[in-house]
Design a protein around this nucleic acid. Sequence first.
DNA 1: CGTGTCCATAGCCTTTGGTTATCACAGCCG
DNA 2: CGGCTGTGATAACCAAAGGCTATGGACACG
Lengths: 290, 290
Amino acid sequence: MDTHLRDLRYFVATAEELNFTRAAERLFVSQPALSKQIRQLEEGLRTRLFDRDRRAVELTAAGAALLPAAREVIRCWDEAQRAVGDAVAAEAASLRVGLSTSVGRGLLQRAREGYAVRRPNGRLQIRQIDWDDATAGLAEGRVDVALVWLPIPNQDAFATRVVATEPRCVVVREDHALAGRSEVAFAELLDEPFLALPAAAGPLRDYWLAIDHRDGRPVRVGATVSNADETFAAVEEGSGIVLIAAGNAAIYQRPGTVAIPVSGLTPSELALAWRADDHRGTVRDFVETL
Amino acid sequence: MDTHLRDLRYFVATAEELNFTRAAERLFVSQPALSKQIRQLEEGLRTRLFDRDRRAVELTAAGAALLPAAREVIRCWDEAQRAVGDAVAAEAASLRVGLSTSVGRGLLQRAREGYAVRRPNGRLQIRQIDWDDATAGLAEGRVDVALVWLPIPNQDAFATRVVATEPRCVVVREDHALAGRSEVAFAELLDEPFLALPAAAGPLRDYWLAIDHRDGRPVRVGATVSNADETFAAVEEGSGIVLIAAGNAAIYQRPGTVAIPVSGLTPSELALAWRADDHRGTVRDFVETL
DNA sequence: CGTGTCCATAGCCTTTGGTTATCACAGCCG
DNA sequence: CGGCTGTGATAACCAAAGGCTATGGACACG
């Protein structure tokens, strides 16, 4: 048998007052309503809780047993409500950060610390997002801010702040003809098969294929990859070569692959992005932290 | 904001299944009913508890915070119900014993021990009852068994078992003319003012005034007394003298008063009594104990 | 012997909790 | 592609719960 928590409060008030009329006043209900609820509680528990002796109301043994237990249930429920409230507050102060690759560069660590100062109750929740969404989850609303490589699709919808500008490298298998070189010109790569981002990545796919450095010559796509793991696996497999940012070359050093600086390309831009119509304080705090 | 404990069970079931349809089945309610109650819980807490993403249901941060807390509330309530159940069981095994005077004679101690063997969960609750009710609470249902002096009013309604038969004494003030005597004949007391029980005590009042040893001569009533304390206070005050059982003379030795054995009276009978229509095992156990 | 206090009951209305039927949407399979 | 299936939301409806006001009956008190 379950009961409404309100009825437990009714019971406790009545047990404290030992007077239905006064208890009803304290509870802001009519006396008959209180009587009825107490009776119902008694029926549910299959025992009387009060002896309504003529003139005096007093607790039965069962009522005396229930009183501390009921107080405990109420305390426990109040505690539960507090826990929910805390969780809501913490979430309101938290931000979901979208990433497509590891960022490195000490960025995340600094962001965490800086944000913790501004929002002591908040947390940064990091989400790895595949390249099917070049906005790293921003577009679908899965994150609040993201670290993305420019350009991104529908860029007008987002505000961006460039946080790093780096030359590009090419990653080749260690037995590739160029593997020993300390630098290559992009022109030397034009006939190589390239790994490509998914079509959904839009302009970002073109960017990492360096379409506008090819003078209209078609690109050979060796495979399509959706994240960093797939990319390096594909290079090792010999499916093709791939351009990456110099910073990422330092982070991702995989045995069996070699990264070589490439000349003749515009540098890549890593940017912090958020929805242009998102004016929440938490977002601004995060942006200012970086 | 308070909620029905049932709704917490609904929430827990849904959080465990992460599927409204299955949770509703487990709870033996329809799925719309479950949906509605969960929504109402969410409104009460002013936060969403589940993310009903298309295809998947999962807990929000608030929901995750509520889950253990809700389990705790439910556990706590189950505990409260158990406490009430225990109290009811204990009371069912307990007996209220009515007394009008101290009983002494080691009776109560033996009764307690014997009863504890038969009803380990039960207890004897002793109630002192004034002589306004010569049945020591039996008539009004305030006790289950009583130790009474015979005769009692409406004696057919009760079953009795005599536990002690004792000669009677008279209690006088220490400066009374008879105070030095080692025994007196009742005939010597006929002109003394007597303390009387309340009229409601009926035949018992007559008995302790020894009406049927007076050959129709009227009794002088010095005062009416309702319990042992009043009786001795009245004797000390000089309001009158009073007959008591020899056993009680031993128990109640008050400075300023003297008890003297009286000859020429029928002996008094202390009896265990219970309602004739009360066939409960607890009552029988108690009777057999004595 | 009124009068006031206090709990219970009765009659009525609104809200709540439940039902069935149906819709909208996603995924799956042929 | 089109129909089937599984899932949650919605609508319409009904019974029960929970509230109120008015009233009754028992008792204490002056």
